[in-house]
Design a protein around this nucleic acid. Structure first.
Lengths: 192, 192
DNA sequence: TGAAAAAAATGACCACGGTCAATTACAAAA
DNA sequence: TTTTGTAATTGACCGTGGTCATTTTTTTCA
């Protein structure tokens, strides 16, 4: 009935995370290999997997952390009131999400909590995105015939669409932010 | 200077594809293992990789083929004229895309031609989606203050959003088609 | 037809994520 | 302090995608 957690555990876990962050700093997320991490942390491979379900679980944690930091930063800024201002305000979040193709793919993959997994930091960020934008929209100069929540979900959909296109060899004509602004303009502009 | 293609090549390739389709029919796309395919086809593993760049390349081909068939089917049907009709008309495409989580993820991953890869069948389908919907929108009862192309891109964005949510443990309240209809209604309804 | 060249196929091998029975370190009870 | 149960760690091993030097088959051309 007792499940003591030894101090050693926390230390090992911290070493693994620090090692992983070092590896990522050097070569990016995409290139991270579990072997490199355990070697840098000075533990056996099996230890890694008793701390993290699998490689993706570590990645979700690390990328999720950074994503949360982006949200914190955005929430510090001023409240945007127009479509271009909204696109601009969200920029730090979008920039991180598209910093690496691997990062974008993983975020999308974890954006919804799957049946098995309990809800993780990335899925929470997707809810937070909608709440954040919906909050802005309540006082912004946008159409009022549609609820802020629905409008915010649309903003998310358009942002993902724009980000996908960023990794697309076609469509490289327009930049990401130009495209997003066009979408948001069309979606948020008051009907008149 | 000469690069003859032997008949044998085509036969082997056909055997591999047929074997793969058999394996998929039995267990779905997700569970396909290259070893099963080569064994069923009666060739060595290396042969597989001289016919397909990697496992994903085979999958892109097979899933792309099915997706193209869905588009062909949808294009046979009558031209929809309202938001609900459009959602309905697209249903076969969306149904296949969400038939398996693996299928959806792979389609999203290949939806834009990456720098390296030349444009494949799935990326082509994404362009076709926009063209198809834009064509419908020209004569549909929808807002006219925005170009059909832009409207169609929005439909695509909302469809992807709805499909993502289908795999999400949260948000299971509304069904996929209900959600898509709500989005399309808001996006396509004439401003007045 | 036979030899040389090109194309295709082979399978042993590697990389890397992930597993698990065995071992070691720890902490509470005696 | 010693004993004992459990938490934590280990590393040999596995599965599966992918590579490549070698062998086999086919084609070309004298």
């Amino acid at each position: 009935m007792q499940k003591t957690v030894q101090k050693r555990t926390l230390k090992t876990r911290a070493r693994l995370i620090e090692a992983a962050e070092d590896v990522i700093e050097r070569n990016g997320y995409q290139a991270l290999r579990v072997e490199d991490v355990v070697q840098a942390a000075g533990v056996a491979k099996g230890t890694f997997f008793s701390h993290f379900r699998d490689k993706d679980a570590l990645m979700e944690m690390l990328i999720g952390e950074r994503l949360v930091a982006c949200f914190d930063q955005v929430e510090q800024g001023p409240v945007p009131r127009t479509a271009p201002e909204i696109a601009d305000a969200l920029q730090p979040i979008h920039a991180f999400m598209t910093s690496e193709r691997y990062v974008f793919d993983l975020i999308i993959r974890y954006s919804g909590a799957t049946a098995i997994t309990e809800i993780g930091p990335i899925a929470r960020c997707f809810e937070r995105y909608v709440r954040l934008v919906a909050g802005w929209l309540e006082t912004a100069k946008v159409r009022k015939d549609i609820s802020p929540d629905l409008l915010a979900e649309g903003v998310q959909a358009f942002a993902i669409q724009s980000m996908s296109l960023k990794f697309c060899a076609l469509h490289e004509a327009e930049s990401f932010s130009d495209r997003l602004e066009i979408y948001l303009d069309a979606w948020l502009t008051p009907a008149n």
